[in-house]
Design a protein around this nucleic acid. Structure first.
Length: 218
DNA sequence: AAAACGGGGGC
DNA sequence: GCCCCAGTTTT
């Protein structure tokens, strides 16, 4: 897929994903576009199937949906609320520590620049960029494993890590697509172009795709 | 029973 | 760069 084809591919993709639901973090984000909720649900989704994080997020936010309320909880309470996402102790402690920092240093608000977000323990490039795009509507490119896999299958980038994919997309991808690319490709990657079964025979983007490294259906 | 799933920290 | 981190879901 080349520079000239990306516009057409995204137009096709935009239509195709209407048949499916968006990832949990997007759903959480669009409910008020609350940066704190985006940040917390993104931490919950870490190395966890996306669909299971929606319920866990909802249960936790019923207890506390602001940094001020979150610091009133203890680790066991958070651990119980976020079942069954896994990594309970790490995630609960990170959410608490970040909430304390937000209260102590930022008056209970979430910073809206990449460098500041990346300083929080538990916040990497995927999470920080997602807070920017979904929480604040600011330009950012959130590259998770779906974005990384699909951009390489297309042959649009040739990279080894998600971080390299982010920087490659910053060079190549028109800025008008930066905010929407994550939702489009995660939805596409969860429902059709999955890790083990790319479903090439029914893919609407077949003509644009180099099918690099696809795994045969079993 | 076994493989797959998905980011970030520490070194 | 490499290794570690845990538990649910799919095959």
């Amino acid at each position: 897929m080349g520079d000239d084809q990306i516009h057409q591919a995204i137009a096709i993709l935009t239509e195709a994903v209407k048949a499916w639901v968006s990832p949990a973090v997007t759903i959480v984000a669009t409910q008020g576009r609350d940066p704190f909720k985006v940040l917390v649900s993104c931490i919950l989704s870490l190395r966890t199937r996306d669909l299971t994080t929606a319920e866990a997020s909802a249960r936790l936010f019923a207890l506390a949906d602001t940094p001020e309320k979150m610091v009133g909880l203890d680790v066991p309470q958070i651990e119980a609320a976020i079942y069954p996402v896994g990594f309970y102790r790490v995630k609960a402690e990170q959410i608490l520590e970040i909430s304390r920092s937000l209260c102590d240093l930022y008056r209970g608000t979430v910073p809206d620049d990449l460098e500041t977000l990346l300083k929080f323990k538990g916040v990497g490039r995927k999470t920080a960029n997602l807070v920017l795009t979904l929480g604040f509507g600011k330009p950012g490119i959130c590259v998770d494993i779906h974005v990384h896999r699909i951009c390489n299958r297309w042959g649009y980038v040739h990279t080894r890590t998600p971080e390299q994919t982010e920087f490659a997309l910053r060079e190549k991808l028109p800025v008008e697509y930066w905010i929407i690319i994550n939702d489009l490709l995660v939805t596409f990657g969860q429902n059709l172009c999955t890790p083990l079964s790319p479903h090439c025979s029914t893919c609407p983007l077949y003509q644009f795709c180099d099918r690099v490294g696809v795994v045969k259906s079993r």
